[in-house]
């Protein structure tokens, strides 16, 4: 009895959360297209999210390419198919690994950052102060952050993918005597628009999800410092989950349109 009650309660909370998130998202779209545009704040957020994540994304991407190549080599060598390494690595990185892993890293960095920042602003009444001084805090804080995340994440993913391929090429060059030119040739022979375009479109949604969940959790933060921690923590969890859901849907859709 109590267990079923708990499950019902949890389901209810979950559904309420989903509903609130949807309202939050619809409010975002409504406010996104209404004046005034907080352009300077948008640029500042782009800078904070983009440039400040470059090192993280670069290192992650480099190691991703390096490790992925190193780990796949023995298996492919068993088949005598080392020459397929560049194609395999580039396709899997560009299509799936790069976007998902970099988005997850960014969910950890950006979502929690936004959640904590907005949460503490909510708790210390800074959001109220903003509203009282006549500035729409949703526009100033939420719209700019979600938009910045949506715009910046694809760029970060492209940046990360490129570095990952450099890492992979390095390993191939050191271990397999594949020149950088040959690697590059093979990569671009293997890649198609149907690899790069769905991945890029998908990464916009990833960015939107990261920004949306971070802002939602932070903006609706409960009072107290515990609330801030909770906001940033659950922002990461929800954002990561949402990323996989989006990825799942994206694969289905790109399957229909691009015949992978």
């Amino acid at each position: 009895m109590t267990i079923s009650h708990k499950i019902a309660q949890k389901t209810k909370t979950f559904l309420i959360e989903i509903g609130e998130l949807s309202f939050f998202a619809s409010r975002y779209f409504k406010e996104l297209f209404s004046k005034p545009f907080e352009f300077n704040e948008l640029l500042l957020q782009c800078y904070k999210m983009g440039n400040k994540s470059l090192l993280l994304v670069g290192v992650t991407g480099f190691i991703l390419g390096l490790v992925f190549t190193l780990q796949s080599r023995p298996t492919l060598m068993e088949f005598g198919a080392e020459s397929w390494m560049p194609s395999m690595v580039s396709i899997s990185i560009v299509r799936e690994l790069g976007p998902v892993i970099i988005a997850l890293i960014c969910a950890g960095k950006l979502s929690s950052g936004i959640g904590a920042e907005l949460g503490s602003m909510r708790v210390t009444e800074q959001i109220d102060a903003m509203e009282v001084s006549g500035t729409n805090p949703f526009k100033y804080l939420v719209v700019t952050r979600i938009l910045a995340a949506t715009l910046i994440l694809p760029l970060l993913i492209i940046f990360g993918d490129t570095i990952a391929l450099v890492g992979s090429a390095l390993i191939e060059n050191l271990k397999g005597d594949v020149s950088f030119q040959l690697y590059y040739n093979k990569v671009f022979n293997a890649l198609k628009f149907s690899d790069i375009i769905p991945a890029t479109i998908k990464s916009f949604f990833f960015g939107f999800a990261i920004g949306l969940v971070g802002c939602f959790k932070g903006y609706n933060c409960k009072k107290g410092t515990v609330g801030v921690g909770e906001a940033s923590n659950s922002a990461v969890v929800y954002a990561s989950m949402l990323l996989f859901v989006i990825d799942f849907i994206a694969v289905f859709i790109s399957d229909i349109f691009f015949e992978i």
Binding site: E117, M121, T124, E125, D128, A129, M130, V132, S133
Partner: peptide, 13 residues
């Protein structure tokens, strides 16, 4: 209306 918040509510950033 000027509003002085309890915790000052200065914008941290």
């Amino acid at each position: 209306i000027g509003f002085l918040f309890q915790g000052s509510a200065l914008y941290d950033s």
